[in-house]
């Protein structure tokens, strides 16, 4: 599949394509997101001492000090490692498999929890399959990862309540969440130019389809709705990522988790060098088809602006090099084919 964006329509500083009217390039072929970023005063760095202060407010007062959302990827595995080893906490590792997680990712988490000696909840479910199928079959522009993220976050809040963990730890990196603006609010700013259209389509799908399907009747329509719901819980968990507070980049912590907990890269994932689930191939395919970019383009653009990766590396990692055979293999689990994506 060749969904590569033409180089001349990509911002010369980051990897965002020109998608008018929300994202546009100026005469120097720099996107409005980069221009806005350059004009903003630099953010004060988040300090590890502040992170520790938050951790210590809750340390030892609950059954678990925190719940770590584990995907088997490098960032969440490092987050689990830091919680146990660097901050000496009693974390509960939590992983779900909606039927599309890879064996490699699951094994990464299993090895890590065994090595670190932490309790582990593995939640396997078919709950989301019908929704994924609906998105594909209905030709919705909803980004498959979005309702899945909302569901996963909802599940994490439930698990934190059930297992009495006051803090939810995510493996979000500096590119994956607005650091200071959305502290403890988990996730991205859906009103930002780069996310607004995608979020609108996801919201529209959820509005139209969840009412029709009994099992999804209570499914939160947006991340904001989910957060409002979580605030009403008796047990209020906050969400944080250690990566916002630490100066170490993947270069440093991948080495640590490889050595300490036997973490390994997966063979095939999108973007390269990630550990995303197999449904993510379908999600990314649809995102490119409908919007011209994926949320990984947004995240990597932020990482470029933060000085974490180079633009050329991001362009390389974002190349879509997966085949119809792979897509068909994933789609067969929800009784769909590549033709359903292309019709």
């Amino acid at each position: 599949m060749d969904s590569a964006i033409q180089e001349q329509s990509i911002c010369q500083k980051c990897v965002m394509p020109e998608v008018k009217p929300r994202i546009w390039l100026n005469e120097e072929r720099i996107c409005n997101l980069c221009v806005d970023h350059a004009n903003k005063p630099p953010l004060q760095p988040l300090l590890e001492s502040d992170f520790i202060k938050t951790l210590d407010k809750h340390r030892g007062k609950h059954r678990y000090d925190c719940l770590v959302m584990c995907s088997g990827g490098k960032d969440s595995t490092a987050a689990l490692y830091f919680m146990k080893k660097r901050y000496n906490l009693n974390p509960l590792a939590f992983m779900f498999d909606h039927g599309f997680e890879t064996e490699e990712a699951i094994n990464n988490v299993k090895r890590a929890v065994a090595k670190l000696g932490v309790d582990f909840v593995f939640y396997k479910t078919e709950h989301m399959k019908e929704m994924f199928k609906n998105i594909v079959k209905s030709k919705s522009k909803a980004i498959i990862c979005h309702p899945c993220s909302i569901w996963y976050m909802d599940l994490a809040f439930d698990m934190a309540e059930k297992h009495d963990a006051p803090i939810i730890i995510a493996g979000w990196t500096k590119g994956q969440s607005e650091k200071q603006e959305v502290m403890s609010k988990c996730g991205c700013n859906v009103h930002a130019a780069e996310y607004a259209d995608m979020a609108k389509e996801t919201n529209r799908f959820l509005e139209e389809h969840t009412e029709k399907t009994g099992k999804y009747r209570d499914f939160p329509r947006t991340m904001e709705e989910l957060l409002a719901k979580s605030k009403k819980k008796k047990h209020k968990a906050i969400v944080l990522s250690p990566h916002w507070f630490l100066p170490y980049g993947p270069e440093e912590y991948v080495k640590i988790i490889k050595e300490e907990v036997g973490w390994e890269y997966t063979k095939n994932s999108y973007p390269s060098k990630t550990t995303n689930c197999n449904m993510n191939f379908v999600s990314a395919y649809n995102a490119m088809k409908f919007f011209g970019y994926t949320h990984y383009h947004v995240e990597m653009s932020k990482l470029i602006r933060e000085g974490v990766i180079t633009r050329e590396q991001a362009l390389e990692d974002l190349k879509m090099q997966f085949s119809d055979e792979l897509l068909n293999d994933v789609l067969s689990k929800i009784d769909c084919t590549v033709d359903d994506l292309r019709k």
């Binding site: 760095p45 300090l47 590890e48 001492s49 520790i52 901050y87 630490l246």
Partner: peptide, 17 residues
Amino acid sequence: PIQSINYCLQHEGITSY
């Protein structure tokens, strides 16, 4: 000097603990 303190501890790979 909270930023200096964070730097010193992180340089050594330790925390205030």
